[in-house]
Amino acid sequence: MIEILQQIVNGVAIGGVYVLIALGLTTVFGILGIAHFAHGSVSMFGGYLTFFLVSGMGFPLLLAILVALLTGLVIGMAIEFLAYRPVRNANHINAFIVALGLTMMVEGLNLEFFGHEQVVIPTDLGRVFNIGGVTLPELRLYVILAAALLILAMTIFVEKTKTGQAIRAVAENRDAAILMGVNVNTIPLVVFAISTALGVCAGVMVGSLFAIAPGIGEGLVVKGFAVLILGGLGSIPGAVVGGLVLGITEALAAGFISSAYKDVIAFVVMITVLLVRPQGLMGKA
């Protein structure tokens, strides 16, 4: 029993990272219908940048994260404006190809700037809590708390603010939103800025919990899409539920079945859910 609880706690931490990645993907998908494949690599850039600022420049961790976040905002807007906007009215597969090209570019830039060695963002959060036999490293606890906080902030932003309302309006019905005076040129910029910032947070979490290396970002974005499928494309609660389900499934599979095949098991769960509920766990039919 303790063992199961332990794996669930581990799963929640990695699930939190998946949720953050998926939130970025799902808002972009909801508004623009783009499968933003470069999201993982851009997120890893954020992680790398944080590592560089902390280890190379001697920044305190929080300041480094702040700088990386702001950089993320700018990069997100640049990607939307320079790469996706020109193919906005073309076939969706074209936007996907642009996303692939961007992935290569960002992966290449990451290699160019930060090399191919794997890096771990140093934190001084070394304590380990023990709650009734379940061990919980301090770092993991903060990751879970930070993810929860970001999810909450994102939900409030989308549900309660004027801009959030405009984002939902565009997702619901783009033409009607234009008629109601929503500026459909600035909304995608805002969405990309926020989604990239969330991605940067996920990148920092991956970099401090595990490690950042070339290729990690691509694996992560695939997981992000799997989360969207599980939860339902374009749905924020879906991303949260899907991310946690995927993270916990993986942790349980790694703990009790086989760590080599944990991804296979996670994908099998995803495909099964899709067959039973094609609209995802939280999607509308």
Binding site: V222, A260, L274, L275, P278
Partner: peptide, 28 residues
């Protein structure tokens, strides 16, 4: 048979997952 029950991006991502499964099995 199962994956063609869904369309568009769903289909793309399900097939992508199949590719990853094939890759992991070949590796392990």
């Amino acid at each position: 048979y199962p994956s063609l029950r869904v369309k568009g991006h769903y289909f793309a991502i399900v097939t992508l997952a199949f590719n990853m499964v094939i890759f992991i099995v070949l590796m392990n």
